[in-house]
């Protein structure tokens, strides 16, 4: 598992690749914290994720809480249906911004 990080016009886009489970969540967490320490506008793209467990959900929630507290913004995009199902089950669709594409995420960064 690895996490790609790129700057798209002042927004950091994190793309975790592979499975986010207990054994790999730390890599995701380190990348998320590193991004949040340098930029408060963050998008996570889930296009290259085929599996997420509660260990990965925890990282997303932690990042969402951190950015909310620091007046930043977190938006989640490109989520496959089966990944969205797990977010919805956890009630995360109510507390996190989830949209289809990176283009759509831009509305939250104005």
């Amino acid at each position: 598992m690895e996490v790609k990080s790129e700057d798209k016009g002042g927004i950091i886009v994190l793309t975790p690749i592979g499975r986010v489970d207990t054994s790999t969540a730390k890599i995701f967490e380190d990348a998320a914290i590193a991004a949040a320490n340098t930029n408060k506008k963050i998008v996570i793209s889930f296009k290259a994720i085929d599996y997420i467990s509660s260990a990965g959900l925890r990282v997303v929630l932690m990042l969402g809480k951190k950015l909310t507290a620091e007046k930043g913004v977190l938006v989640l995009v490109d989520m496959p249906d089966k990944i969205f199902a797990v977010f919805k089950m956890s009630g995360f669709d109510k507390i996190l911004k989830i949209v289809s594409t990176f283009e759509e995420s831009k509305q939250f960064f104005n």
Binding site: S53, S54, A55, L57, R58, L61, M62, G64, K65, T68, A69, V86, M89, S90, G91, K94, I95, L96
Partner: peptide
């Protein structure tokens, strides 16, 4: 508590809930 706000949402207990 899946109804709480992001500020109040606790980080643990999610695994067994799933």
């Amino acid at each position: 508590d899946t109804e709480s706000s992001i500020e109040d949402r606790k980080i643990g207990g999610l695994g067994i809930f799933l």
